[in-house]
């Protein structure tokens, strides 16, 4: 077993293990913190696939952005005391049926699909330049549209936050 294999199994175990904690933990806080290790594991797998830009973008966006927002959300919605938010089990039977069907479909799909498997990875040293060039030439329009969409979303969020502030002042 080479180092790469060892690292692959390490990151795979980290991803799956922490994903299980996310799913089965009753405490939302534990689930959120376990998500950190899931994201790190996935980033590690990306690195092993030579997708270094994707790996770092994964950490930047998910750990630096979404996870922190999630934690803030959980911490601000509960009281700062030790009142723990937990998730419970409801609708046991329908959930089992739906999840069972979904699992069956997924297993069927995974086993029947023809995977485009390559014997070895293409020899790439860094994908950043390539991605940057493609984004600003071939995929310029989608890139710009995504930029405008995000700008609109940010402005919308700011507007919503503002309007609640005004109603408070009026009241």
């Amino acid at each position: 077993m080479s180092y790469t294999d060892a690292f692959f199994y390490f990151f795979a175990a980290l991803t799956v293990g922490s994903a299980l904690v996310v799913t089965f933990s009753r405490s939302v806080i534990y689930a959120a913190f376990a998500l950190l290790f899931t994201f790190l594991g996935v980033a590690g797998l990306y690195v092993l696939l030579q997708a270094d830009f994707l790996a770092v973008a994964q950490i930047m966006v998910y750990v630096g952005g979404i996870l922190i927002l999630l934690l803030f959300g959980v911490m601000l919605t509960t009281r700062v005391t030790n009142a723990e938010i937990t998730t419970g089990t409801v609708q046991g039977l329908p959930a089992t049926v739906v999840v069972g069907i979904l699992l069956g479909t997924l297993i069927l799909l995974v086993s029947r699909a023809t995977w485009n498997v390559q014997e070895s990875l293409p020899d790439v040293t860094g994908t950043t330049t390539e991605i940057g060039e493609r984004l600003l030439t071939t995929f310029l329009l989608p890139f710009e549209i995504a930029g405008i969409l995000l700008l609109v979303a940010i402005m919308g969020a700011a507007m919503i936050a503002r309007s609640t502030d005004k109603t408070k002042e009026a009241a």
Partner: peptide
């Protein structure tokens, strides 16, 4: 890394989660 600065910024956010923890 070709990603240098981007990487330094990204892994910094792991420590932030640690603070929150």
């Amino acid at each position: 890394l070709d990603l240098g600065i981007f990487y330094v910024f990204a892994v910094g956010s792991i420590g932030v989660v640690g603070l929150m923890m």
